[in-house]
Nucleic acid binder design. Structure first.
Lengths: 202, 202, 202, 202
DNA sequence: GATGAATGAGCTTTCATTCAT
DNA sequence: TATGAATGAAAGCTCATTCAT
């Protein structure tokens, strides 16, 4: 891409370009191995330019995580607003979560998989944002319990258990790409059904 | 004890010290952020000394992963050999896996959580070793299916779904230590029961 | 030299400064013993700065050799174009070669004296460039042979023998500076005359 | 080679083994790139053992050079003692020098080619030893002059010019092994004849 | 806003050398 | 005599970051 074309880009788009480039590189090379230089090269700007948009490298990571949480929370909130049968809502919520991970593997890995200890700053921010995200799942579970559909009445216990199930599948699918998984949709169906069947009152 | 023997033990001791220091730092700071210098400092040796025991940095990681897989595989194999009711075996296998993660959080994170892409060398070795590890779970599932106890007859499908469930819980518990989980044992019980109830034939 | 003075230097001169410093050090300390740090120190810049101008250490060496070959080839080519008596051309060519070595001892040592085996990269490039350089001498010899002036008609044999003679003198003069040579010009005259007399038809 | 065989070697042979291994490595890898460790490995001893025989690395280099000069000087002295026709003696001296270089390329490169500046210690020793070596050639030249056979009566001037010629050929042949030289014996004959013809009185 | 030259600290790794055994 | 563990220094190189322009 030539200089002129680059100049023609929307100026306010640079921030997004940086985030996108960083996201890709953070996952492909790892956060530590991704240098500001490489990000700058990818978007064809000088290294110094990055610092006009972000305080430092870790802030880029923070923004990526925030953005991820926010987008996932939005998707889950939409399901919450749905008036369908609670158990169907829950099922759809689980699927939505998994699908989000598959659709945004880079986002997911950076935000949900990488151990927080690997990153210096912004941890609390991300945890709080993660909690907001988690609350959507929690509310759907609550509706199921209020409707007497579950075999356990502790909202948090169930919500956390479900989160564990779908996070496990999501993280394995996006990080262990070399593993010989059975056909993906079948596996997703199975995991979701196990969770639903496993909590249903009988 | 002869001089040679004592020397050999001393040497072995330093090796272990290095591995232990590395394990801690790899998790606290991440593999990339952990420098040989920092490991050497922690055990109060000169940086060069590390190279008397390990070819390079990645070999340290390889040894840690190998050790982890090997220890977990051993635990799971023991359960496989048990002649108890298949479903009980399975239940115990799931618990054992989770407990292993809780007992060896550093091992678990490095080996199972960190995205393989973050690490250059030894990947295939670790993946193969991981597969061996997974096979133990698979065999237990097979026994359950042969006994007609499950609602699904695809061994791999079930085994992978179960792995997802327990890996999800394990990784969340060891990496999201700041998250307000419900009482740990209760959560573990719940997750295990969900998986078992979710696959049981009715 | 102070910081201000350094700042005042032409930016485009830094490349040359690096090359000059490297040339000196490569000869004084040897290529291997010359560290990037030492080069940087000599020109009063940070080590990393070198890498803004050269990909790595061997590229500095490559540039120095290239430059040397190119400059010598140019000088020799000029003599080739001369229409004087062939034997006079040849005599002048030999003198020019020796004078070049004396005028650029560092260039000469690095490019012609240091054993190629000591250096890993760029070897073929330098050998090829050296061959181009040698061809100029070869052409002058050819003219002498075609004019029936020599006692041997094998162009390569004569050219290589002459090269040996003048390279021997050049390399001794620039490397064995402590040796009690007779007065330099007299020695040069003698060597050149020996070569010319030694190949002349009688 | 096993440990037992190694133990069986003559103890006083270790010094020689070290020198031989060092000689090979110094030329193949360069002095700087040859580590004490590599020398020790090659002879299957511990690094520390080297220091029982040599004060430091540079002393190894010194001993190699000394040995080389001594052996060459011996060969040339033998020719000096010969009572043949002076010019024949000289011719044989030149050939002997070149043949020595070809027979001991490693020795020759280390001692005569590598710029003295590349090496820190022992320089004066080697130069002095080199001078002793040179004196043999000088004496043969003197005999030729006393017999009125040469076109120049300055012993040093002629001797140094001859040294230049044969050193040039020798160093090119042993260092530029990739260069497409004409058949070696023909080239040697030519160079020797050029030197002899170039100094002969007419 | 954007540049890119420059820095200083840090990296992994190798080295010559020492010394207790 | 010989070992080999250990060291401190230094290597080549990359980094996040700054700042004059």
């Amino acid at each position: 891409m030539g200089v002129l074309e680059r100049r023609a880009r929307q100026k306010e788009g640079i921030r997004e370009e940086i985030l996108e480039a960083a996201r890709t590189l953070f996952v492909k090379e790892g956060y530590e191995s991704t240098s500001i230089r490489k990000i700058a090269e990818k978007i064809e700007y000088a290294p110094g330019t990055i610092y006009l948009y972000f305080r430092d490298k870790s802030e880029i990571l923070d923004r990526i995580c925030e953005e991820t949480f926010s987008r996932l929370a939005q998707k889950l909130a939409a399901i919450n607003r749905d008036q369908a049968a609670p158990l169907d809502c829950l099922r759809r919520g689980l699927r939505t979560y998994i699908q989000f991970a598959l659709d945004n593997p880079n986002h997911y890995i950076i935000t949900f998989v990488q151990a927080p200890g690997e990153v210096k700053s912004g941890e609390s921010i991300r945890c709080e944002a993660g909690a907001r995200c988690f609350n959507n799942l929690r509310q759907t579970v609550e509706r199921c319990i209020l409707a007497g559909l579950l075999n356990c009445t502790d909202v948090d216990e169930v919500a956390q258990a479900l989160w564990a199930g779908i996070h496990g599948l999501s993280s394995l699918l996006v990080t262990r790409t070399g593993f010989p998984f059975v056909e993906q949709n079948r596996l997703i169906d199975r995991v979701v059904e196990i969770q639903i069947e496993g909590i249903r009152a009988r």
